[in-house]
């Protein structure tokens, strides 16, 4: 008997998501038990069973921490576009005055 992690997909637009685990002697039984445990109400339209021992996991979650300031990788770093747009408009407005002279 082995632990199988169960994943289900709730629609073609969604990725497979982990929903739990079962203990089974083989993949066929793992899928059957997974269906009974996690898909009794059509919560998904497809199912995977993966042997837990086949999953490679990070040993050290701290490697996910971002070492330096990398705020430029996030949309939140660009929230001042509203001010920037306003400044640009003012700049253009001043140009058209200048152009008329």
């Amino acid at each position: 008997m082995e632990v199988y992690e169960i994943f289900r997909r709730s629609g073609h637009k969604n990725p497979f998501e982990h929903c739990g685990a079962v203990i089974a002697p083989d993949p066929e039984m793992a899928l059957l038990l997974g269906k009974e445990c996690f898909l009794r109400r059509r919560e998904g339209e497809h199912l995977w069973a993966v042997r837990r021992s086949d999953i490679h996991a990070l040993e050290d979650e701290s490697v996910l921490e971002i070492a330096a300031d990398k705020s430029y990788r996030f949309a939140s770093d660009y929230r001042d576009v509203v001010d920037k747009r306003e400044a640009a408009r003012r700049r253009v407005a001043s140009m058209s005055w200048g152009g008329a002279s």
């Binding site: 685990a21 079962v22 203990i23 445990c37 009794r40």
Partner: peptide, 17 residues
Amino acid sequence: IQDEIGHAQLLYRVAED
């Protein structure tokens, strides 16, 4: 009743770990 047994299955699995 089937749901309740299903809950037991999920919980025993978590406890086993």
